[in-house]
Design a protein around this nucleic acid. Sequence first.
RNA 1: GUGGGUGUAGCUCAGCUGGUCAGAGCGCCAGGUUGUGGCCCUGGAGGUCGUGGGUUCAAGUCCCAUCACUCACCCCA
Length: 423
Amino acid sequence: MIGLARLSAPRGTADIMPQEARRWQELERVARQVFEAYGYGEVRTPIFEYTELFQRGIGEATDVVDKEMYTFRDRADRSLTLRPEGTAGVVRAYLEHRLDGAAQPAKLYYLGPMFRYERPQAGRARQFHQLGAECIGTSDPAADVEMIGMLAGLLRRLGLDGFEVRLNSIGCPRCRPAYVARLREAVASVVEQLCPSCRERYHRSPLRLLDCKRESCQRLTAGVPVLLDALCDECHGHFRQVRQHLDDLEIEYRLWPRLVRGLDYYTKTVFELISPDLGAQDALGGGGRYDGLVETLGGPPTPGVGFAAGMERILLALAKSRPQETASGIDAFVAHHGAEGRRAAVRIAARLRDAGLRVEIDYLNRSLRAQMKQADRQRARAVVIVGEDEAAREAARVRDMETGREQEVPESNLLHVLAQGGN
RNA sequence: GUGGGUGUAGCUCAGCUGGUCAGAGCGCCAGGUUGUGGCCCUGGAGGUCGUGGGUUCAAGUCCCAUCACUCACCCCA
């Protein structure tokens, strides 16, 4: 029995206890509703995949693949990895189930745990949860906007509205290499003055030089060519249409020329939704277009676009922007006294529950006074009291906890009285 | 992986420069009310002072290590 003396959930994981779980259920319910409204169907893919899927899909040079994956070998020595994001698995399923041969585009959504080995902090955990959607098989700019609109709509529907939409285009394999070359050239003279991670980026993924948070780096790269000005005609046109659709839908956004993303598969449109209430990890969700991903994973050339949002972060932002709603109470508490009263109480509680009422009963044989206190704490609308006398008459006293009014009711009439919400 | 902060009762926290410092409030349980909640009063249960070493006559209190939590960097959801 090693380490069990401490008994705590592993670092970076958390239990979601009943009170909190209700908020999760509400989020899930609304999310499914929104997804269905947009014509998306749920897909449930495995929690783990072959490691290679993520290496190829997300990109070897990304931080996620390079140092954040939970990778292990199974008993047959296969390398498996707990999924660090949802898109790769969904695209894999799309290909495996030959959705490329079905009606296009395929519209899929998912919901569930993801895993990344990182140092936990506010809004960041090792096991966290994302909800997301993928629209595979169309390069229509309207699909890009559908993603942004769907996520923004979901957040607003939940009661969040302080978020900001940031938008950029990072081009395609036709225009990006030339830009990256120009960028490298422009930065070459100041490389030595950049922060250590930017010096690393300069070699591995120059685009990410653009969104370093350090002021010193920002200053050094201030005059660098702007990605948006370097797009090829196709990417430029696509981006123009994306903006047009956003305007048509009256979705406010800010152009964020330095927004790049940490996963290699993105092309053209990228976006993030930022919350002002979250601290350092302030992205509620983000996504973009990935026109090369399906092909990278072995399928036919197929465009796609998607997004993912952090469920913990949404809940966190919701908690900060909205006063805590009080949990609803139960319909009735059945209090009893004496052996016969207890028998009757057990029977009554079961019947009321069968009828769909939320009913509690004391199993600790406590004094009536203690049972009343318990009922009060659980915010019971009514208390059904059954003592020896009432049991003998096959009746019970019903006390309205709001008004304090009490009346004796025949057992056969209890459901009727309680269903009316008082007496 | 790097840096800062914090670890004392279920929760929020007091415990000054080492010597009744093991406490408070809330919560929980019971009683005050032989069968009746919210307010009030009384009592009770509950703590390896994160863990392991060390210094000292004496260590929540000082030192070292370690673990955990937390915030930030990095990265992202």
